[in-house]
Nucleic acid binder design. Structure first.
Lengths: 415, 415
DNA sequence: TAAAGTAAATAATATTTTTTAATAAAAACT
DNA sequence: AGTTTTTATTAAAAAATATTATTTACTTTA
């Protein structure tokens, strides 16, 4: 019997014989299905579960009882009904198991603990940076150890870890290219963490995590074809199709940042010329601002003229929102270029919704409007009929929730 | 009980009570699963089916017996075994049911009859053209009626129709934009055919059908992430992900032909400027050839200098394959541009294989090489590691097989 | 060519699951 | 307060399914 990652959870709780019988397989599957339905699909009464899982009410009752016995779920109340007895509602037990989420960035690292009710029990941002830090992993382990020690009653209830990280994550080897470039080792970050904590660990690209969060808990909830654009220090595209993260053959899908948009453009750090990243990312925005100021552009931001290194994105967005024409123009242009790039993704994926995430999403309408304008200009009309473009409401939490949902799904998913 | 299209087949053969019991639902599902596995997955022994469907051998045996009884399948022989009794092999019954496939083009219409063993029983190409023909549908019905009359023993065994058509096909409304533009009616071509023949009818975009054919029966067989480029009078992209056609929210996904590649380009018939279609399609190839000859380019094709209207694609490709430098150059350039466009699709979909279909695929290496070159130039290296680019071996049959598989899948798919 | 070994098919038995039914409990309506 | 509606619980009969044992069919080996 192969012990795949998705088998972790229930194996310890359900009697598993040396050779699993068909009955046990089915039973396990159904129990996972119940948990999955309760967690993701808001099916929380016996009747709903019975319908959704094509099983009789007595059977589901028995399985639900087992899950209650095993502390996975518990009766949380009663549903409202127009008449008749109110059905009992079952919910995931929030206090039995926790998932630890690590949001690793180039500029900081966030560590969060979530319960299975999708509540952030604890969250801490550390200034631990991924770049140029050879002892990154040791420091990370120390930080996590401390938190687990203090916040999760000696860690005996953490059942899995989820890691969000920028850059390509190879689905087959688990190798992350950001971490790899850091210490030039062909090792899987996930495996390293998994070995250290002896817990199932799932690594996911940051933009994919964000998209998944938007799908499960944000404005994209329930939409079948979702794009989330992570406008950050690079451009990341997360794609969720029919509730599943779209990975591509190796896990690299959605690499919008390195399509060529300007053959005569500047050299990108990927080695190619004129990538979208070189034009529309937050870094290129700051560069444009600084260049403009140096060239004597009139702007509120003039006050930074002699200390350009102090300008950051918040300052620029703030100036734009207060009406500074120069800042508005720069953001507008970036939006137009990004929208042009996105219109290709629209033609290829035909999405229902595009959600703007990442630092630049703070610019709200100032960034959405030009994006929308460009999409109107470059997309065939049929593609726009069912398409909406929205600013994220979850903001940076989208990523955390997304990683968490990814972990829970990986643990519960019926093969 | 809703009667969805996918329920058509087995409903008539399995006793269906007014309210379907859980057992019946499961039984029906399993019987569909068996047919599906036999048709698509080459699972054809009791043991294999038992494993694949998580059901005991006696249960599967009983269901298989029922399906044999109902003439869906039959014992076709015995498998080889290294030792012990040889298991019986079951195969789809080729002579019970037929699917009628209509491949509608702008230049001709092909009508094919296939049995459930995926064999083309009959095929006929008519010069019926979709464009500018108000009585298109009546003529089509007449053609089909004749064929059914003569070839399929009074049509009593045709169980479904599949239609391949160029242009966008709206998944929700069933409206095809090519047929719509023809007679400016907001009607679903599929519904019209379905009503006329009173048979389930499935309409699918031609490039999607081709991709599906390549996935099930061509070089892309078994690959999880497949792109098929239909280089025809326009550029069509068919996408198959994990064995399913990727449709997008409205069915429009894969519209590669109308991404802008040249802001200063010519007007496209879609109304936008500089679309990939205007540069890389077969029509633009012919235009380039003719322009070149008019401008006095030296070439074997000179002989057509005074009768340019007689030049067609076959002639050009033939000249190129015989070494004509001018024809080779033109094809090469188109390949480069197409490859550049495709590299965007590679970044977004991260496919394992790209198959070149359509009329231009006849140019073999002359078109593949520049495509490959461009992808090497514009794609990040990680994307190329598991990627292969191939010329279709199925040629025009890919589309027919693809439509057929699409119909069978739609009929059999377990909800 | 016969015996031994292996695997599939079948039959018999055991188990699980569903169905049915009857009763209890909870809520809303009259 | 009583009736109606809906859900929950339990039990028992019926049906479906899995497991085990046996028989059959075939291959290999001696």
């Amino acid at each position: 019997m192969s012990t795949s990652k998705t088998e972790y959870i229930l194996e310890n709780d359900v009697e598993v014989n040396s050779r699993e019988s068909v009955v046990d397989i089915k039973k396990n599957k159904q129990k996972k299905g119940i948990l999955y339905d309760i967690y993701f699909n808001d099916k929380n009464t016996i009747a709903e579960l019975s319908q959704s899982l094509n099983s009789s009410i007595p059977s589901i009752t028995a399985l639900v009882d087992e899950l209650v016995e095993e502390k996975w779920i518990s009766e949380t109340g009663f549903a409202i009904s127009r008449q008749g007895r109110r059905p009992a509602i079952y919910g995931v037990n929030p206090n039995k198991n926790y998932v630890l989420v690590l949001d690793i960035n180039t500029h900081d690292t966030r560590i969060a603990v979530l319960n299975l009710k999708n509540e952030i029990v604890f969250s801490q941002v550390s200034d631990l940076q991924l770049k140029n830090n050879p002892s990154f992993l040791e420091t990370l382990f120390q930080l996590v150890d401390n938190i687990v020690e203090q916040k999760v009653s000696k860690g005996k209830d953490v059942i899995a870890l989820g890691v969000s990280i920028p850059g390509l994550v190879n689905k087959k080897t688990g190798i992350n290219y950001t971490y790899k470039s850091l210490n030039s080792q062909d090792v899987s970050l996930g495996k390293l963490i998994e070995n250290y904590y002896n817990l199932p660990t799932f690594v996911i690209n940051d933009s994919k995590a964000t998209a998944f969060g938007e799908y499960h808990f944000g404005l994209a909830k329930g939409k079948s074809h979702v794009l989330s654009v992570n406008v950050d220090w690079g451009i990341g595209l997360g794609i969720v199709i029919n509730g599943e993260i779209f990975d591509g053959a190796s896990g690299f899908a959605g690499e919008l940042g390195h399509i060529q948009v300007n053959p005569d453009g500047v050299l990108c750090n990927c080695g190619k010329v004129g990538c979208l990243d070189t034009i529309t990312s937050a870094s290129s925005l700051l560069k444009n601002i600084k260049d403009g100021l140096r060239n004597g552009h009139v702007s509120k931001l003039d006050e930074y003229k002699d200390s350009l290194e102090n300008i950051n994105l918040e300052i620029v967005i703030d100036a734009a929102q207060k009406g500074d024409g120069f800042a508005i123009d720069i953001i507008h242009n970036i939006g137009l270029e990004l929208g042009k790039g996105l219109s290709i993704a629209v033609h290829l994926f035909n999405p229902q919704i595009i959600i703007i995430d990442g630092v630049l999403s703070k610019a709200q309408k100032l960034i959405v409007n030009p994006i929308e304008h460009a999409i109107n200009k470059y997309c065939l009309t049929d593609f726009k009929e069912d398409l909406s473009i929205e600013i994220s409401q979850l903001s940076e939490d989208a990523k955390i929730f997304g990683v968490h949902a990814y972990v829970v799904e990986a643990l519960l998913k019926t093969a």
